[in-house]
Simulated assay, not measured.
Amino acid sequence: DHDTSFTVMDRMPEGAAATLEAFPALAHVPVLRTWTGLEGATPDGIPVIGPGEGTPDLWHVFGFCGHGFQLSPAVGDVVGRSLVSGTVDPLLAPFSGGRFDAGDAA
């Protein structure tokens, strides 16, 4: 919204140096464009993880408020186990999107 996503050009050299340190094989790959995006956030700062309330075959996993990369291994494990077993792991109960139903929002 309102043009709030932009590339911070003065950080590009530092980011490129860190990338090349981790992945030296990319040294000769030209940078043609950059991409930015808005970070997903929820009103309570806690992600939504689980099947849709009216669409149980459609799972939602979003709103990590900047912590998705760190949490993805654990979230992937519990979501994967839930999908394979066909039963939502009880650990996911606090992350249900239903917590935002009328009167329940944080």
Rank of each mutant, 00 (worst) to 15 (best):
H67K: 10
A25S: 03
C65F: 10
G86Q: 07
L20C: 13
A102E: 13
T42A: 05
S85D: 14
V79Q: 13
P13D: 08
T34H: 15
E14A: 14
F64S: 00
V75K: 00
V8I: 10
G98H: 07
W59L: 03
H2K: 03
G68H: 09
G97W: 06
H28T: 13
F64V: 00
T36Y: 14
D44Y: 07
D1L: 08
F69I: 11
E53P: 00
D104N: 11
P30V: 03
F95Q: 02
D89C: 05
T42H: 08
P94F: 05
D3F: 06
G86I: 07
G86W: 07
V84F: 06
L38T: 02
D3S: 12
P94C: 06
E14M: 10
T55P: 00
R33F: 08
D44E: 02
V79G: 07
T42S: 08
S96T: 12
G52N: 05
F6Q: 12
A102R: 12
F95D: 06
M9H: 04
G50C: 04
G63D: 07
S82K: 09
P56F: 03
V75C: 05
V61C: 14
P73T: 01
E14R: 12
F100D: 05
A106E: 02
F100T: 02
F69S: 00
G103I: 02
V29Y: 04
A106C: 03
